[in-house]
Simulated scan of single mutants.
Amino acid sequence: MDKFTKEQRSKIMSAIRGKDTKEEVLLCKTLWHLGYRYRKNNRKVFGTPDLTFAKHKIAIFVDGEFFHGYDWENKKHKIQTNQEFWHKKIERNIERDKEVNEYLISQGWTVLRFWSKKVKKNLDEVVKVIKNEIDKNKP
């Protein structure tokens, strides 16, 4: 049983952002201050990555743990309310992420995906991975 009423849960879920999450903003500001220039939510690139470095063909996604199924096999049993809906939705998100990765890779893009909690807790490590990838892909 959910500890919130249906109206409270609806309000909480509607407040979850699809773009410009705290972690995305943190990563963007850090990269910008280091002198890296990128496009945010570039709709011209399949899958609308959170950040793109078109010159280097690098697409970066910052995925939220709940909606993108972090440790899904262990965590899916913890969803107590509206299980059928959430299982279907999250499993489709996982499938879509794989499709986006495969397509972008087939088009010569490098795809980097980070869990939002990794960005929050290990920002330096995430930035290092991005910097290394940019250095590798310099034209």
Rank of each mutant, 00 (worst) to 15 (best):
L27S: 01
A54T: 09
F114D: 00
D124Y: 10
R113C: 01
K11E: 09
R92K: 15
R43W: 05
K22C: 05
K76A: 03
Y36D: 00
D71C: 09
T30E: 14
Y103I: 06
Y38M: 12
N137W: 06
D50C: 10
K131F: 05
F67G: 03
N41H: 15
Q107K: 15
F46W: 10
K121Y: 04
K3S: 11
L27A: 03
E95I: 02
N82R: 15
G108R: 07
K19C: 06
N42W: 11
V119K: 02
V127L: 03
V62H: 07
F4S: 07
E95P: 03
A54K: 13
K98Y: 02
H33W: 09
F114W: 02
K3M: 08
N101Y: 04
I130M: 04
K29W: 06
R39S: 09
R37I: 03
E91Q: 14
Y36V: 01
G47C: 13
N132P: 03
V45I: 15
F67Q: 02
P49W: 08
N41A: 08
N132R: 07
K78F: 14
A54W: 00
V25N: 09
R96H: 10
I90P: 00
I134M: 12
K3D: 04
K121V: 03
F66T: 00
G69V: 01
C28E: 05
R96W: 10
L27E: 02
S116G: 14
K3C: 08
G47Q: 13
N93Y: 13
K136C: 07
Q80I: 15
D135W: 09
H33Y: 13
I94D: 02
W32G: 12
E84V: 11
I134W: 11
N93I: 04
D2Y: 10
E23M: 05
Q83P: 04
D135M: 11
D20G: 05
E125V: 01
R39C: 09
D124N: 15
E91V: 12
F85R: 12
E99T: 03
T81E: 09
G35K: 07
